[in-house]
Design a protein around this nucleic acid. Structure first.
Length: 572
RNA sequence: GGCAGCGUAGCUCAGUGGUAGAGCAGGGGAAUCAUAAUCCCUUGGUCGGGGGUUCAAAUCCCUCCGCUGCUACCA
């Protein structure tokens, strides 16, 4: 039986993530993993923090913390945010783990041995005042093209031209402002990825049907423009050290580039998972050789990550010469914007995972983000649209349905699944419709078409309301108690169904819905039997419980206060 | 500058050669079980502009306009 290995692009360690990161990699992966788990497939959902690199070093310095302590703290916070959003990882690891160090060095040794790495001497900017090499972006100066005096060494933000730090006029360190900088030679390892273009092209060409156009077009663009060999080491301290047995120790004291070790942490975190759960070498069965032949590997990420997952990481794997798994299904997302502007971690603009949970339960966010996922183009978050859609879809269409059915049952049938009456034409029609819709919903989840899946899910809830209006047990009960009983029984079975279908997206609310009828399993399974069976499954006479209001409506005053608290794109 | 994507109803979006669609919002009605929640009907679009191919174009081609992203050392 197929097993599903599911990874989310690793969230960078420098702070709590915003809704854009959540929808594009963390949440979408979780919804897909839950769906597959609900279907009964063995799944392994893996994520981790991406901790290395100069950005982390500088963020830690700014926080006056030791790098490791900074990462420990941020890791704990990100893990807590993930738990708060019910992101049900099998393991949430860290790219700084011993497992990742070993695997990263393992891959590097293989690449070196196979002749896919070479050393090159490059010119790097060194700051005597900061006593460190500076990444291009940490050198600032005057742009030679437009004269902007705070251009960064990698690109001028004013005229958007790509720069080299040596082009800058009056260069200085962005860290200290010191002009005491010099160009030093530095030896680095380069991954000769240009040699892999034919293999990459063939591999990517085989996925034009099952990857979004966004993904294949980005991947092909990189190949078409001529793939350059890429430096995979850096002159920083916080990272995986280059082993001495590569290039006769010529890279002593250097570490691998964060984009080299971060994807390897997908494997590293799987090994962390095995170690944490006493599973020994079982992690290999998800990744390596024939043991992993039944694994379908699915990756979720924002479009900025696509090149590293369609080119960089695959070259690492191909070049190793070992049979590690390549990604099978790659789901990429566009950007989610905030009130017409960009979400920004550095500028703290938008809604972040921790503050989101302060104002509404996770399920509200989970549903809205999946229903508005930026799949075919960038999408926009606005408070007005957010509140309107949640009030309509969750409070009115879903929540109110559960409420009206269970309350009517309590009032007229002693809160028990009625045994009288039998299903007739009205029920047959509904069953026929839902057989089609539930199958369509499953197909959309399988296709990772989350936006359409949410529209289908909503249509299923609407079908329940339509049925109830047609069956009108509140009218029937006056003249034909058996007819009313059958309608209430169907209503309760629909509530039960909704609990099952909603679970991948809204696990907490789905559980409450399910538990209004009967206790729920840890994983609420996907209904795979025909609706004629599923919708007559509840035991006659079963005592149900009217739940508390499932989704509190969002009031206009709340919307206003959130707008004030979080501001808009203009930072107001 | 180069490359890529987008532009469809007031709003958010489906639709990639065959009679322009959905949800929300707006209008009318029904119902009164329910969180005033639901259900039915309905108004609304020269599919960014222009040109071309075709029996037929939102869809393919060219061009112009507008927006966005990427451009390899931020991740």
């Amino acid at each position: 039986m197929t097993r599903y290995l599911i990874t989310s692009a690793l969230p960078y360690i420098n702070g709590v993530k915003h809704l854009g990161t959540l929808v594009g990699s963390l949440l979408s992966a979780d919804v897909y993993a839950r769906f597959r788990r609900a279907q009964g497939f063995e799944t392994l959902a893996i994520c981790a923090t991406d901790e290395h690199g100069s950005t982390t070093e500088l963020a830690a310095a700014e926080a006056h913390m030791d790098v490791r302590a900074f990462c420990d703290l941020q890791y704990t916070m990100q893990k807590a945010s993930g738990d708060g959003f019910a992101l049900d990882w099998d393991h949430f690891g860290r790219s700084s783990s011993r497992a990742n160090h070993e695997l990263t060095q393992h891959f590097a040794r293989l690449l070196w041995k196979n002749g896919h790495l070479e050393t090159r001497t490059t010119k790097q900017v060194y700051s005597n005042a900061d006593k460190r090499f500076l990444s291009d972006r940490y050198v600032i100066g005057t742009c030679p093209h437009c004269g902007y005096d705070r251009a960064r060494g990698d690109q001028c933000e004013n005229c958007t031209r790509v720069l080299d730090p040596v082009d800058l006029i009056d260069p200085r360190s962005a860290l200290s402002g010191s002009r005491d900088i010099e160009i030093r030679d530095s030896t680095h390892l380069f991954l000769k990825q240009s040699a892999f273009v034919p293999k990459l092209r063939e591999w990517i060409g085989g996925h034009t049907q099952d990857w979004p156009p966004l993904v294949t077009s980005i991947a092909n663009k990189w190949l078409d423009e001529g793939l350059k060999d890429r430096g995979i080491t850096r002159d920083v301290e916080w990272g995986v050290p280059v082993p001495d047995d590569i290039a006769d120790g010529a890279l002593k004291g250097k570490v691998f580039y964060v984009w080299f070790d971060a994807p390897i942490e997908y494997i590293g975190a799987t090994r962390e998972w095995a170690e944490a759960n006493g599973k020994g070498e079982a992690w290999r069965d998800w990744w390596f050789g024939d043991a992993a032949k039944d694994v379908v590997y699915c990756q979720f990420m924002g479009k900025d990550n696509v090149p590293f997952h369609t080119v960089g990481f695959p070259v690492t794997i191909m070049g190793s010469g070992e049979p590690w798994k390549l990604v099978d299904r790659l789901k990429g997302f566009n950007w989610l914007n905030f009130e017409g502007g960009k979400f920004s971690t550095s500028q703290q603009r938008g809604v972040f995972m921790d503050s989101a949970l302060e104002i509404l339960p996770a399920d509200y966010w989970r549903y809205w983000l999946m229903a508005n996922a930026p799949e075919t183009s960038d999408a926009n978050f606005t408070w007005e649209q957010f509140a309107a859609q949640l009030n309509k879809d969750l409070a009115d269409v879903l929540g109110n349905f559960v409420n009206r059915v269970t309350k009517f049952c309590a009032a007229r049938f002693e809160g028990c699944v009625p045994s009288e009456g039998s299903y007739g034409a009205e029920e047959d029609t509904l069953i026929g419709e839902l057989d089609g819709r539930v199958a369509a919903l499953a197909a959309l989840f399988e296709a990772m078409e989350f936006r359409k899946a949410m529209a289908e899910l909503r249509a299923i809830f609407v079908a329940g309301n339509e049925y109830l209006t047609r069956a009108a047990p509140w009218t029937a009960i006056k003249t034909d108690r058996a007819r009313a009983a059958a309608a209430v029984r169907m209503g309760l079975n629909l509530v039960h169904l909704f609990g099952h279908l909603a679970w991948p997206v809204m696990p907490t609310a789905a559980r409450r819905i399910h538990e209004s009828i009967q206790d729920a399993a840890e994983v609420i399974p996907w209904p795979d039997e025909p609706m004629a069976e599923f919708l007559d499954d509840l035991e006659y006479g079963l005592q149900i419980r009217v739940p508390q209001v499932l989704f509190q409506k969002i009031a206009d005053e709340q919307v206003e206060s959130w707008k004030r608290r979080f501001g808009g794109a203009d930072g107001a």
